[in-house]
Amino acid sequence: MLLAVDVGNTFMVLGIFEGERLRAEWTVHTDPSKTLDEYGLLFTSLLERAGFSSRTVTAVAISSSVPPLIPKLEWMCHKYFHLKPLVIGPGVRTGMMIRYDNPREVGADRIAGAVAAFEQYGGPLIVVDFGTAIILDAISARGEYLGGVIAPGIDVSADALFQFAAKLPRIELVNPGSALGRNTVHAMQSGIIFGFAGLVDELVERMAAELDPEGQGCKVIATGEQAELLLGECKTIQHFDPHLTLTGLRIIHDRHQAHGRGGR
């Protein structure tokens, strides 16, 4: 079984695959201060509570937006799973051509999501990942990663309002139902929810015009922990796939294994 680990700036998502089937998934806070033993005990505990054991894990694939955590997780895999993990990065065959000025600048999670999206939906397409940042990635009809957009995330922006505007409270991020706020909390929720929906729609439309100038049809797939907040408000999003990055890690791992056995 494959243990896929996507390390984001705020959250770490783990998934256990049996073949192509995702058997279980967990989301925990990313904490660079944890030791490798703390992570080892956390991972094995989560597996055991879901009915698995460390012995059932035969491979580990990792993508990380937090580079200092990679060596710690590598050593954790050696100690607790007796495995060398596949860490997605330069030199790892993903099956996707990267048309970025400097391919090393593209986060491994972005490539994993792009690989999964193209495999499942075809191109051209745009992946919108709602995480610590809102990231939009463009993939061509030929399956090439072309680049994208990075914008501030919903939580980051809401926290900034609370921290830097003395009279504004920390609020619950929910859809207020109407744009015209009748109180401060309602007004902030409106600005964040509807404001970010408008931001995403405008960016998608601009990117689609460049990616698909003839209007043949550009697919738009959303993922990420904050996506469901805006699904009903973003007019351009066509599909929601909460497991996109984990699926991409599984696909890249399978391709890496096939290449190692002499496959393509």
Rank of each mutant, 00 (worst) to 15 (best):
Val7Leu: 14
Phe11Val: 06
Arg23Ser: 15
Arg23Ile: 11
His29Arg: 15
Leu46Tyr: 12
Arg49Ser: 15
Arg49Trp: 07
Phe52Met: 13
Thr56Arg: 07
Ser63Arg: 01
Ser65Leu: 12
Pro67Trp: 14
Pro68Ala: 06
Leu73Trp: 08
Cys77His: 06
Lys79Ser: 13
Tyr80Asp: 06
Thr94His: 11
Met97Gln: 13
Met97Ser: 09
Arg99Thr: 03
Arg104His: 11
Glu105Val: 07
Val106Lys: 06
Ala108Tyr: 08
Ala108His: 04
Asp109Thr: 08
Val115Asp: 01
Phe118Ala: 01
Glu119Leu: 01
Gly122Leu: 03
Thr132Leu: 12
Glu144Phe: 14
Gly147Thr: 00
Ile150His: 13
Ala151Met: 05
Pro152Gly: 05
Ser157Ala: 14
Asp159Gln: 14
Ala160His: 09
Leu168Ala: 07
Pro176Glu: 00
Arg182Asp: 03
Asn183Gln: 05
Ala187Gln: 08
Met188Ala: 09
Gly191Met: 01
Ile192Gln: 01
Ala197Tyr: 02
Gly198Glu: 08
Asp201Arg: 13
Glu202Phe: 06
Leu203Thr: 04
Val204Ser: 07
Asp212Thr: 04
Gln216Tyr: 05
Gly217Ala: 02
Ile221Gly: 02
Ala222Gln: 01
Glu225Lys: 14
Glu233Gln: 11
Lys235Arg: 15
Lys235His: 14
Ile237Ser: 02
Pro242Ser: 09
His243Ser: 12
His243Gly: 05
Thr245Val: 15
His253Ser: 09
